[in-house]
Each structure stands twice: as structure tokens, then as C-alpha cells.
Simulated assay, not measured.
Amino acid sequence: MSVTMLQSLFGQKAWANSELFDVLATVTAEADLHMAIRTLNHIYVVDRIFRAHLLGEAHGYDATNTKATPTLEELRAAVKETDAWFQGYVATLDDAALAQPVQFRFTDGDAGTMSREEILMHVITHGGYHRGNVGQILKNISVAPPRDLLTKYLHVAEPQRRAV
């Protein structure tokens, strides 16, 4: 995969997260909102774990979610910062860096090795999967989830693509 495509995917991830947090800010069903925040917090924690792997640093997590649940606004700010970090990080890479293997330990203690590209794709696909889970929570309480589509993002980010 090209660095350009990864930049688009991480741009879309940040945009989709922002759109989803906007919708969640309107939700008044506390139990459903709590479940959505827990799911988004899981995405955030996994993003932070893999960020640490990419940097060769300890991440400090012993699980893929935290015991305490942040507020929606606390999580939104943390996710925004992490999304910006990934966008900046991807912009510094080239094909050789993407191919580099990274050795790490999963939170259960098992060893793992993935290329930087594989880690980045995991972050993208993992987040998309769980944003879909949150979308289903919203549908179940009759709230329309945002359209989390690459096609929509590309046309929002680059409106000239609509001119044919």
C-alpha cells in the first residue's frame, strides 16, 4: 500500500471519528451512550498500544480497554490527539519504513511481529470495525449514524472530485 493511500485512510479515520463524536454528543440514552463510549475507548486504547509499538516504547496498558470509562469529551480530545499523531506519523514514512518489522508483546504477554504497514492497517481496520459497532448501537435507539465511508470522506476533503 502506498503512503499516499495510508494518508487518505488516516485522514478518513480522523474525520469519521469526529463525525461520530458529534452524533454521540446528541445521545441522551445513558446506557447506550456508555456502551458506545466503552467501544470507542477500546479503539483508542488499541490505537495507543500500537502507537507505542511503532515507537518502540512501553504503552502501560494491561488490557485493551481501561477499567474507568472517560467522559465523551475527555475521550474525544484524546482520540483527536491520537488521530493527529497517526496522520503526522504516516506522513514521515516511505516504502522501506513501511516494510520494517516491529517486534512487540500483546497485552496478554504473547510475542508478536508485524511490519509497520501491517500495524497501520490493523489500526485502520480495527477502528472501522468498532465504529460500525457504535453505529449499530445508534441505530438501535433510532439515531442515524454518520456515513463512515471513504468515498464520502474523499469528496468532503476534496470537493473538486465531484466536478466531472
Rank of each mutant, 00 (worst) to 15 (best):
Y61L: 07
A99R: 12
V46D: 00
A97K: 15
D95M: 04
K67N: 12
L98N: 00
K139M: 14
N41Q: 15
N41F: 02
G112C: 11
T151V: 15
A16T: 02
E57A: 13
R105C: 09
R161K: 13
E73P: 03
L20P: 02
A58W: 04
K139W: 07
L24G: 02
W85D: 00
K152R: 13
K80E: 15
E81I: 04
V164C: 07
S2C: 03
V123H: 10
P146M: 13
R161S: 10
A96D: 08
M121P: 01
T107L: 11
A84R: 11
L138D: 00
A111G: 13
L149V: 12
G56T: 07
T113M: 08
T92Y: 04
I49K: 02
T113A: 10
D47P: 02
T64F: 11
V134R: 04
S115Y: 06
D148I: 15
L40A: 01
L154N: 02
E117H: 08
L55S: 05
F21Y: 13
S8E: 13
T28N: 05
A16G: 06
N133Y: 07
M1Q: 03
H126F: 08
A16W: 01
D32W: 03
R48V: 04
F21W: 04
H155V: 15
S142L: 12
Y44M: 09
A58R: 12
M5I: 09
G128H: 14
A96R: 14
S142K: 14
D108Q: 06
E118V: 14
T82S: 12
T113I: 12
A97T: 06
A29F: 05
L150N: 08
T39P: 09
A36R: 05
T28D: 03
A96V: 10
Q136V: 15
V164K: 11
A63G: 05
Y89N: 05
Y44E: 08
G112L: 08
K139R: 15
N133D: 12
A111N: 10
K13D: 12
R162P: 06
K139S: 14
A25K: 09
I43P: 13
T125Y: 15
T82R: 13
M5E: 11
G60L: 09
V79H: 01
L120R: 07
V164L: 13
L120G: 02
D94Q: 03
G127I: 02
T107C: 12
T26R: 11
S115K: 05
T39N: 07
T151A: 12
A111Q: 10
Q100N: 03
D83C: 09
K152C: 03
A25L: 07
I43Y: 04
R51A: 05
P159V: 13
K80H: 13
A78C: 04
K152Y: 13
L54M: 12
V46F: 06
F50G: 00
Q136D: 15
H126V: 03
A58M: 07
